[in-house]
């Protein structure tokens, strides 16, 4: 599924919060086209920060990040244009509460990509159909459940026809019974060959679709493995200890 062209390349990325706290320590990672990379690790390990650096939502202090060849860390890069090529899904959904579901899916298409309202609406309708929410097109986000909102958020990102999708703990804020409806959409997306970087604690999802698993701890990428070796035979003690804590139950 994955060919060899890198979509996302991170080289020796370092980032500090203030002079004493280093959130990212020399992180390097390449995500190829069609690849699904899951990032896991204890809270505070820097995984959310890492994924937000990919589209420049968080600036880095040094190192290089390129997305489809464009340097995110270069000051001359127009970040809005680059971000339009990378979809992002947030822990707290972040739908625009003053817009209907359809408007949420159209605003970026119209204002950023310059699509006509008719074209944007047609695309929105097709995507809502795909995530099973056509019936809610005219509602406001506040009228939907968390799981529904997150599926809309995925559709909103997909409406931009992104080259890659970033997921920042997409199921962490959901009630347990809503987690699967969101994971199902993500699994389908992965199986269609979408390039994905996913920060999550859902190891079932990782086992099912991840091409590689990145384990982070204290700002470092400690281990990168394919799903078989990572779960059954982790190389490092830190990964082993992490897995024993989250897989026991």
């Amino acid at each position: 599924m994955a060919d060899n062209r890198p979509v996302i390349e991170m080289q020796s990325v370092n980032k500090w919060y203030g002079p004493n706290f280093q959130v990212l320590k020399d992180c390097s990672l390449t995500v190829k086209r069609g690849e699904v990379v899951v990032i896991c690790g204890p809270s505070g390990s820097g995984k959310s920060t890492l994924i937000k650096c990919v589209n420049g939502l968080e600036p880095v202090d040094n190192g290089r990040i390129t997305v489809t060849g464009t340097d995110v860390t270069d000051r001359k890069t127009r970040l809005p244009a680059l971000r339009a090529k990378v979809g992002m899904v947030f822990q707290h959904f972040e739908l625009f509460p003053h817009m209907t579901i359809t408007e949420n899916l159209c605003i970026g298409q119209e204002k950023v990509l310059g699509r006509s309202p008719a074209e944007a609406k047609a695309k929105a309708a097709a995507l809502l159909e795909r995530v099973g929410l056509s019936a809610h097109a005219g509602k406001y986000p506040g009228q939907l459940s968390g799981g529904q909102q997150q599926r809309v958020a995925i559709a909103r990102a997909l409406a931009m026809d992104p080259q890659a999708m970033l997921f920042d703990e997409p199921t962490s804020a959901l009630d347990p019974e809503m987690i699967n409806e969101v994971l199902d959409v993500m699994v389908a997306l992965a199986q269609e060959g979408m390039t994905m970087m996913v920060v999550t604690h859902e190891m079932g999802f990782a086992r099912k679709v991840a091409d590689r698993i990145v384990f982070m701890d204290q700002g470092e990428i400690v281990e990168i493995g394919d799903r078989g070796t990572f779960f059954d035979n982790p190389k490092t003690e830190r990964a082993r200890s992490f897995l024993s804590k989250i897989l026991v139950h």
């Binding site: 589209n55 939502l57 739908l95 970026g108 950023v112 990102a157």
Partner: peptide, 14 residues
């Protein structure tokens, strides 16, 4: 909320 700004930037808004 700050997350709204992040979401708007993430879809490529200036």
């Amino acid at each position: 909320p700050k997350g709204q700004v992040a979401a708007a930037r993430a879809i490529g808004m200036t």
